[in-house]
């Protein structure tokens, strides 16, 4: 997930889990302390760009928004976070990452360590490498 500061500096941080709300908005979880610069930029400009990819298939989706807000993570997000975290580990394991070492660093992560970024998708694009890259994706009304 990326954003930019008021003076145009890009900020970037890994997000743990992403999902859509019934009203069409999206939520992502970001580690509060290491992601502090990104979260500060989002609070200041409300601009976000998200690149969500599946490493094993190279399928990548790009989404942008201009009304992002930063909230504390809340209890109902716990199962979604756990599910997303496990899915991510399974993906990077295919590329040689070591689950035990990842867990040693990130395994103690709880909702208390996370912030929620919520925004309305403004536009989305296919970012999968190849001839279709850059094609806009229609958003549901």
């Amino acid at each position: 997930m990326g954003s930019s500061t008021p003076d145009g500096q890009p900020e970037l941080h890994f997000a743990h889990g992403a999902w859509a709300l019934p009203d069409g908005r999206m939520e992502l979880l970001v580690r509060s302390v290491p992601g502090a610069e990104l979260l500060a930029a989002i609070r200041a400009t409300r601009r976000v760009a998200v690149s969500a990819g599946v490493p094993s298939t190279y399928r990548v989706l790009h989404i942008k928004g201009v009304d992002a807000e930063v909230l504390p993570a809340y209890a109902e997000q716990g199962p979604k976070f756990a599910q997303g975290f496990e899915a991510w580990i399974q993906q990077v394991e295919r590329f040689g990452a070591d689950r035990r070492q990842i867990m040693a660093v990130l395994g103690e992560l709880t909702l208390a360590d996370l912030s929620c970024v919520r925004f309305t998708p403004l536009a989305a694009w296919d970012q999968t490498p190849g001839p279709g890259a850059g094609q806009p994706i229609d958003l549901l009304p």
Partner: peptide, 20 residues
């Protein structure tokens, strides 16, 4: 590393863009 690096660039109007 085997995980592709991610970059965030910024347009002249300040809009960020993320890609691998």
């Amino acid at each position: 590393g085997v995980i592709p690096p991610a970059m965030c660039s910024v347009a002249a109007d300040g809009m960020p863009h993320v890609n691998y």
